[in-house]
Design a protein around this nucleic acid. Sequence first.
DNA 1: CGCGGTTTTGAGAATCCTCAAAACCAGTGG
DNA 2: CCACTGGTTTTGAGGATTCTCAAAACCGCG
Lengths: 250, 250
Amino acid sequence: MDTKSRSARVYPCQKCPLKDRKVFRDLTGDELNFISRFKKGELSVDKGGTVLAEGTRNPHLYTILKGWAFRYKLLTDGRRQIVNFAMPGDLVGLQGTLMGDMQHSVEALSPMLLCVFEREELLRLYEAHPALGYDVTWIAAREESILDENLLSVGRRSALERLAYLLSFIAERARDVGLFNGRPMEIPITQQHLADTLGLSLVHTNKTVRKLAQGKLLRWRDGGCEILDLERLEDLAGWSPVEFPPRPFI
Amino acid sequence: MDTKSRSARVYPCQKCPLKDRKVFRDLTGDELNFISRFKKGELSVDKGGTVLAEGTRNPHLYTILKGWAFRYKLLTDGRRQIVNFAMPGDLVGLQGTLMGDMQHSVEALSPMLLCVFEREELLRLYEAHPALGYDVTWIAAREESILDENLLSVGRRSALERLAYLLSFIAERARDVGLFNGRPMEIPITQQHLADTLGLSLVHTNKTVRKLAQGKLLRWRDGGCEILDLERLEDLAGWSPVEFPPRPFI
DNA sequence: CGCGGTTTTGAGAATCCTCAAAACCAGTGG
DNA sequence: CCACTGGTTTTGAGGATTCTCAAAACCGCG
């Protein structure tokens, strides 16, 4: 189940498939060279595999190159809360890198490919390229801002609004990093994942999903959700587009 | 209502009342000197005053010296979600500093005194003292970790657990930074604040508070909550103490 | 004393939950 | 090729939690 494998380097940073996306800021040659040395290899994780586990101390920090994952926490009796999803360009493991033990787990929703960095070397990045250090803080602040929004949803939106908001949000993010690329907008999650993100029961989540499916806003197909009408979904969610400058990534 | 006033500098960083608390890491002389120049003044805000407003762009970044505040977001129809509380030693405004417009607001729960920094100079901090830049990231990661925990609460805990958890958490944090200091553990919030933090209605929050009050775990007095039995509160919350190394602050 | 903000209580209703079971579906091994 | 299995989705039904509405009580303050 927990099939991770360290593979040879397939993507040198100079040929990073993400770096030319317009949502990401451009890196200088120097920065790219540094990151290239900072990168220690690539890790592939199977669907369902655990990338990072709560309570452990992992020597690595990762940037997602390919695939989907989710970040979650558990209560002792097994109740699970998914706190965020992660996709290409996202950094995972920063919290553990800085604070010691991981306070949450990360699991793959699809086969993944990750860039591997050494946590011990992070400070050297700040020393060598302050702007990259600043970028890492930027990335952490962005995560914070996403969590604020999720908390607003779970605390104050109705089940239907919550679901619409979550799907809109995931779809927008995924589109930005090219996960759809013209193809249908399919999100590789189960309704149990949705339930654990929204703070709802599986049954009620299903009934809510059903409503959106009847309205042709989405459909459920082979273990995933396909967004059919993002626009109406965003209306329902009370979506207010927030424009950000190109974001950094490493 | 929005009474802010820029005051003369009362606390030079060398005499910062927080810097010797054991929850905070020690700063080198160089670092302290730099921070001292980085600090542009002090700001005092009345109880109920707005420190930062969602949708605006503020040229400043603050560290709280004295007082309590909360961070919140609003939906267009007025529903409010409090996402976190802030107290001495906490940095506020970082998200706006990095990403542009504020995505949340910050309001004072008590009279406050804040250290004022210029957002434009933040990058210089990374350049001059990479370790301090690293610290800022640390602070952001800590906020992230708190938000994860809040999300777990709101999404997966019952009303009673949620309330017990929230109060335990606030009390622990406040104690760490010396807000009680032997005195009774009084938290200057209304039940409306609790409700908006927990994602509950005011009425149901009140009924839940009542239960804890009947069990002598807390009592409500002159516009605030006094914790009477933190230990039992933590039991109820399923509290698992997490030990962190001394945390940075600037 | 009156006022605004806050806390408290009651009552009925909506949302959301749990339990239970069936339907569906892809993969596995016989 | 089929039966079986485990995971996922779907549906029904009754019940618990939480909500809204409404009003009263309380309390510091001008």
